[in-house]
Nucleic acid binder design. Sequence first.
DNA 1: AGCACGCCGACT
DNA 2: GTCGGCGTGCTC
Length: 746
Amino acid sequence: MNNKLYADVLVEVPGLFTDHTYQYQVPLKLVGIVQFGNRVKVYFGKQKVTGFVVGFSEKKAVEEVKEILDLADERPLFREDQLALARWLADYYFCSTVKALQSVIAPVLKRTVSRSVERIYSAVRPEQLPALREQMPRSPKRLAVLETALQHPGLRKRELATATGVSIYLVNQLCAGGMLRVETDLPTRDPYSQYKFINQAPVGLTGEQNRAVQDIAAALQQGGHRVFMLHGVTGSGKTEVYLRCIEQVLHTGRQAITLVPEIALTPQMVRLYKARFGRDVAVLHSRMSDGERYDEWSRIENGRAPVVLGVRSAILAPVPDPGLIIIDEEHEPSYKQEEAPRYHARAVALYRTQKCRGVLVLGSATPSLESYCRALPGGEYSLINMPNRINGKSMPNVQLVDMRREVQSGNSGIFSLILLQKLREKLHNKEQAIIFLNRRGFKTLVVCRECGLVLKCPRCEISLTYHTDGRLRCHYCNYRVQAPKHCPDCGSSQVGYFGTGTQRVELELAAALPGVRILRMDADTTSRKGSHEQILAAYSNGEADILVGTQMVAKGLDLPGVTLVGVINADSTLHMPDFRAGERTFQLLAQVAGRTGRGDKTGEVLIQTYTPEHYAVQAASRHNYLAFFQQEIAMRKEMGYPPFAKMVRLILYGRDDAVVQQAAEKIRAHLDRFAVGLSGGKIMIVGPAPAPLSRLKEDYRWHIILWSADYRQLRLVMERFCQATGGVAPGKELKMSINVDPMYIM
DNA sequence: AGCACGCCGACT
DNA sequence: GTCGGCGTGCTC
């Protein structure tokens, strides 16, 4: 008998950029046992590695074939459709199929072998608390821990400690003293077991909500692929629309995935879904343990959890037949993964709903230009507008403060006179305020403080940045020019370099407003796990008057006590060296404005800027998305930027600046050669230029950007390039990353 | 990633 | 003559 069986195996070798499968003979003992999707142990050269079985054949394609040594896991780890998804990811985002597959089944690969989990319960009954309080009046922290344990039974030690705001040491002590009971949990973990399923009486829908639900439900009934752009202002009740649509899709026997940005996946959000769908909900977020994530993953896989609520990576979940995918806040850049495979959840959602004839709903108050463009009349998406807030509340009043006038009238500080005055007013009325600034801006931005002029590259329309050699540089095309001493427009010598930090704001605020209580929230103060929540809790308890923070204070917060939001400098995002700077500024300002006026009193917003006439700032101040969209889209069209083009960004990085630059120049030459002789749309290639973050950690970074209205041609260039280089940059000490549809050019 | 093969300089 | 430098190229 010569009918031997061979398996096609994708080997897991880091650094091996190949979609090639290797044939291994299936040993007799494994015939009928090894299946598609199994992970197996094999020799690859002299090293023992694992690989994924992705096919079988009865003929061998090469002379020398080794045997599979053994199974790595008993059961198959993925289905055909998951491999197809991985292949699509690898193909579209230029990464290896193995890498993509590893991402697609990450929770399975990181699964812990039924590791038992310790859960903490109070050994004290609630009615014993008052007596204890008298017994140990000097231990308020201990009592607080007990209270938390009573309110939230079954937390982990660490969770209990952070939820109470004490150290884990204290929790351990209480366990040792017998006040807390430790239970070793069974392998089935339900991180949200404390949430009860409340079959809520459905709330009434507004007319707008009703229409949205009906449109989407009709599409779900029809069962074809459709995409809806749900453009609804903050507070227009999009979530209720999502919930109703999910109910609809469940009736058709299919499943639903809801994606929310990391910051929006709060316990409240989970509670909302749990209340409606109970155990049918699987939650996936990044702070779960590997074991918890795996448990949810299995419930999705075997169909027990038809409703998935999660962050970006949940789009890869093994939902058998997603009839509905919802992406809330679809414009959020966090939907783009910044490590390989560098996928955008929206693009994956599009692929998945196309493939299984499902409905995709993109919700946002400030849609991305890419999506809104397609939702215009005649586009592939259907637009649903929800322009009104459900409670009839009006949008807050936004006032622009022209900082050029402040400079002219002799105030060269961070705060305008009006902002200080308003802050004093709020303090006097015992109301709260948020001061927002964007530190992600570059110190190196050059602005004329008299007329507000920001120097831009004549070729790319991108802000020039200041370098220590005294020159200004374009980080797209490497255009260079001597930094002017006087403003080329108005001749003023008041040319400034920007970069104000939260710390400085905090200090100056304390100096300007004696006695004020300030909380600061930025990357420095929230590095510890749970500190983010702690700061917010303290602030909403009224422990501070002013919250000073970066990006993170802008998104998703619901603080009814806040009646004033001050934006220190809108220009720091507006003039970032990135073609999406205007879009992000508009989104950010719109978000920030949505943070106020959530309580009974109407809120107000003060935006300080040197360029109040800029359309992004103007439109944001009037809550006018359409006005912004029209101006921005005109600029994109003129420059040939996305959404009128597809973009690919290559980053070359390594320890030696000169080596990296040289390699980048070579690659550019390669690309030029691959681009010539193509019939079809023009391909733009710029760079190499130092990446805006030109030195990240130890590495020097150079980048090359390619874009074209004709994506087929662009792909062709990239395919040739990857084929020639194997996707790996030539030479050692040099690394390269490929980013398709990059969100940032930084 | 590893590990071979391979083609040039300085050593017992 | 050989040891070993690390530049290309392959691994079923």
